[in-house]
Design a binder for these strands. Structure first.
Lengths: 181, 181
DNA sequence: AAATCCATGTAATTCGTTACATGATTTG
DNA sequence: CAAATCATGTAACGAATTACATGGATTT
C-alpha cells in the first residue's frame, strides 16, 4: 500500500479529527502548505480513492440544503497512518529560484549579485512575517507538534535572512578591497 | 516569453559555456539538483523547444562515430537569460516529509516523537556529508557563486541538525519533568 | 442586493520521474 | 571482454496547478 503524496496529508489531517474536503484544504492552506501543499484537484479525487480503498469513510452531513460530506479514518486507515508516521522520512525536496539565480550570478556584475542576495533576503523576510501572523493563534498550544513545526519555519527563515546579510557583507567587503587594493 | 522551469537551468548552465544535453544533466546532478533538479525526460525535449524558439543553437560535434550535439546560447538566448537573472525570484517550494510527520506527531507517544526528530536529523546530517564531499573540488574557486551556494547548502543543513538537537533536548526535558513532577 | 464563504467536483494543461531502447567508446 | 561511461531520445505514468462550473448560506 503505497501512499500518494496527497494521501499522506489527508490521512494525517483526518487523524486530528473528521473533516470535509473543503475543511481539509483550508487547514492545509493555513499550516502544512509551507512544506507540503495540496490543491482541490488533488484532494477530492484522492478522498474518493481512499474511500474505495477503505482507508476513509464519508458521511453525508449537509448544512441546511448545502450538501456536505465529512470524512473520518476507518480502523484500517488509522493503522496505515500510524505505520506511515512510524517510518523514517524519505522525501525532501526544494525548489529555490533565488538559489538558482545566485548559482549563475558569476555572469552578473558584483553589484547585481548583491541585489540578487537582497531579493532572496526579502523573500525570506516575507515568509517570516507570514508565519508570525499565524503564531499567536498557534501558541495557544505551545507543546503541540504543529506549534513546534511553526517555530521551525520561523527560525529557519530567520536564519536564511541572516545568512543573506552575512553574504552581502562579505561581497561588499570584497568589492571595497578591490577598489582600494 | 515565459520560461519553463527546465529552461531556466538549461539557459543558466549554457551561460557558463557550450555543452551537450548529457553534460548539462551531469552538471545539474553535481550542483543545482539540491534546489533545482532536471531529468533527461525534461532536458532533451526542452533543448529542442529552445532551439525552435531561437534561444539556443545546436552544433553537431561527434566524438568519433558517436553522435553528439553541443548547444550554445544565441544572442537572443543570452539576452533572455540576463533578463531572467535580473528579476526577483518567485518560486520557492519545499516538500519535507520529516516536517509533515512531525506536524502530525501529536498522534504519537512522546518517545516516538523524539524518534521522528532523530530521523529528520539523520537525513540532514547525510545531506551535510554529501555536500562536504563536493566541497574540496568547489573550494578551488572560493569567490565563485557556485561555491557560495554550496556553502549555503552545507550551513543550512548544519543548522537543521542543530535545531533537531535542541528540539530533542526540549522534549526530553519535558518528559523528565512529567515523570518527576 | 452584492460579496463572501462554504462546498464539491472536473477538464485542460504542465511538469516531472522512471524506465526503456539503442548504440558507440573507453577503461580495467 | 566486461563494465562503465558517453550520448540521445521516447513512452508511460503520476503529480500538481489552474481555471472553470455549479449552487446554497451568510454577512455586509
Amino acid at each position: 500500500m503505497e501512499l500518494s503524496p496527497t494521501a499522506k496529508v489527508i490521512l494525517g489531517v483526518l487523524g486530528m479529527g473528521p473533516r470535509s474536503g473543503y475543511e481539509i484544504k483550508a487547514l492545509v492552506d493555513r499550516s502544512t502548505r509551507f512544506f507540503w501543499a495540496a490543491s482541490y484537484g488533488q484532494i477530492y479525487p484522492e478522498l474518493r480513492r481512499l474511500g474505495e480503498a477503505g482507508l476513509v469513510e464519508g458521511t453525508d452531513s449537509p448544512t441546511g440544503g448545502r450538501k456536505r460530506t465529512v470524512y473520518r479514518l476507518t480502523p484500517t486507515g488509522e493503522g496505515i497512518l500510524r505505520r506511515w508516521l512510524g517510518t523514517p522520512p524519505e522525501i525532501y525536496e526544494m525548489r529555490h529560484e533565488g538559489m538558482l539565480k545566485l548559482f549563475f550570478a558569476d555572469a552578473l556584475e558584483p553589484a547585481e549579485r548583491i541585489e540578487r542576495l537582497r531579493e532572496m533576503q526579502t523573500l525570506h523576510r516575507d515568509k517570516v512575517a507570514a508565519l508570525r501572523e499565524i503564531e499567536p493563534a498557534a501558541s495557544e498550544f505551545p507543546d503541540s507538534s504543529p506549534y513546534q513545526v511553526l517555530r521551525f519555519g520561523i527560525e529557519f527563515n530567520e536564519w536564511v535572512v541572516e545568512w543573506c546579510e552575512r553574504a552581502v557583507e562579505e561581497l561588499e567587503a570584497r568589492l571595497a578591497a578591490k577598489r582600494t587594493g
